[in-house]
Amino acid sequence: MTPITLVEGRRIALSNLDKVLYPETGFTKGEVLHYYATVAEPLLAQIHDRAVSFLRYPDGPEGQLFFTKNPPPGAPDWVRTTPVPRSEDPSAAQVVVADLATLMWSANLVVEFHIHQWPAGRPAVADRMVLDLDPGAPASVVECSAVALWLRERLAADGLDAYAKTSGSKGLHLAVPLEPTPSAQVSAYAKQLAQEAERELPDFVVHRMAKALRPGKVFVDHSQNAAAKTTAAAYTLRARARPTVSAPVTWAEVEACRTPDDLVFLADDIGPRLVRDGDLFAPLADPAQGRPLPRARPLPRARP
């Protein structure tokens, strides 16, 4: 019989708690649910007012993976949704994970949480910018860290603060809190930054997605600022061989990165990190702490 759990007055059926989802470590579905309950406060601070997409992996990372934008079938009537018009479906809506009950119901589906850069009800008006630093082998998060440090200083020159987190896979994400700004403007600025990084660090950076350009370099993916795109949320588990987390990190940790394992964090690592450091992504939870996006500056002249 599927156990029924009462969460904030909501009845939620939590199934298959002993099912091993990460065979490499023996991490079970029950442990997935425990993890999400443990990080509920900082995770909800990031996603509670945003349309959420789910990457589902009910049989573990080695099973079927499928991306879900529409509310999953059978969603309880108390799960909040918000309109997210799409060209193919103007009436489309997505789940908003607004509280602990919705978080645990969602986690029972075994999901990664992915969010837009704009809050619910304000499509295409971003309050954050994201740069996804994706290494092409043999480059790793070590090279991503060097690029992240350059971007941090470049953003600071424009009066913007950057916050880093692991992608939970191979790279890093940089997030920048903003005053509400049209997504198109943020996208243009992010693309300029990526192009400038490539000009300044030609041996390390590419700004285009073409795989032929990427071996040994870091792809600075600016495209996730487009209004339709989403990015893995801070504190989400990832569908990888081990229960890795998209974990906020300090800049001291980025500076100290010397091997890929230096910036890999598993579910069991996050609780102690929160006790030690607090929520390193707290400034991203409050758009009022952001700063206006500067005007796009002209790119430096190409080097001779």
Score class of each variant (00 low, 15 high):
54 F>H: 12
270 I>P: 06
132 D>S: 00
164 A>G: 11
189 Y>M: 05
129 M>T: 03
97 V>W: 01
254 V>F: 04
257 C>L: 09
139 A>T: 11
134 D>W: 05
240 R>M: 10
232 A>N: 02
137 A>G: 13
211 K>W: 05
199 R>Y: 03
205 V>P: 07
130 V>E: 04
29 K>M: 10
75 A>T: 15
3 P>R: 03
262 D>Q: 06
219 F>Y: 15
259 T>C: 09
44 L>E: 09
270 I>H: 00
209 M>L: 11
60 G>M: 10
35 Y>K: 04
249 V>Q: 05
161 D>A: 15
95 V>I: 14
102 T>C: 06
101 A>R: 07
97 V>R: 08
9 G>P: 07
146 A>C: 09
226 A>D: 14
254 V>G: 08
52 V>T: 15
267 A>M: 02
284 L>C: 07
302 A>Q: 12
221 D>T: 02
294 P>Q: 07
301 R>D: 13
144 C>S: 10
106 S>M: 02
70 N>F: 14
5 T>Q: 14
232 A>V: 15
4 I>N: 13
247 A>V: 06
45 A>I: 07
135 P>I: 05
226 A>S: 14
120 A>L: 07
292 P>W: 10
30 G>M: 03
88 E>N: 14
297 R>L: 12
222 H>Q: 03
285 A>F: 02
111 V>A: 06
25 T>E: 08
98 A>P: 03
209 M>W: 05
145 S>D: 05
137 A>Y: 13
54 F>Q: 04
17 L>W: 03
83 P>Q: 06
50 R>L: 04
148 A>R: 03
212 A>E: 15
144 C>D: 06
73 P>D: 13
239 A>L: 09
224 Q>A: 10
171 G>C: 03
4 I>P: 09
69 K>I: 02
171 G>V: 06
197 A>N: 04
34 H>K: 15
160 L>H: 04
33 L>V: 11
176 V>G: 02
92 A>L: 00
174 L>S: 07
74 G>Y: 11
148 A>K: 01
212 A>V: 15
242 R>I: 04
41 E>T: 15
129 M>R: 00
286 D>N: 13
273 R>H: 07
169 S>D: 12
15 S>V: 14
261 D>C: 12
116 H>R: 10
228 A>R: 14
24 E>N: 08
175 A>N: 12
104 M>R: 12
211 K>C: 09
203 D>F: 04
246 S>Y: 06
156 A>W: 07
299 L>M: 04
276 R>W: 05
71 P>Q: 00
231 T>A: 06
149 L>E: 11
187 S>E: 13
259 T>K: 14
102 T>P: 02
209 M>T: 09
192 Q>G: 12
2 T>N: 14
107 A>L: 01
257 C>P: 05
53 S>F: 10
186 V>P: 01
184 A>R: 11
97 V>H: 00
52 V>M: 10
55 L>A: 12
171 G>K: 04
296 A>Y: 00
160 L>K: 02
289 Q>D: 13
157 A>F: 11
7 V>S: 04
64 Q>E: 14
153 E>A: 10
173 H>G: 01
155 L>V: 02
128 R>S: 07
118 W>L: 01
210 A>K: 13
289 Q>R: 15
132 D>A: 04
201 L>A: 03
302 A>M: 11
256 A>P: 04
147 V>I: 08
278 G>V: 01
187 S>Y: 09
75 A>E: 03
12 I>S: 01
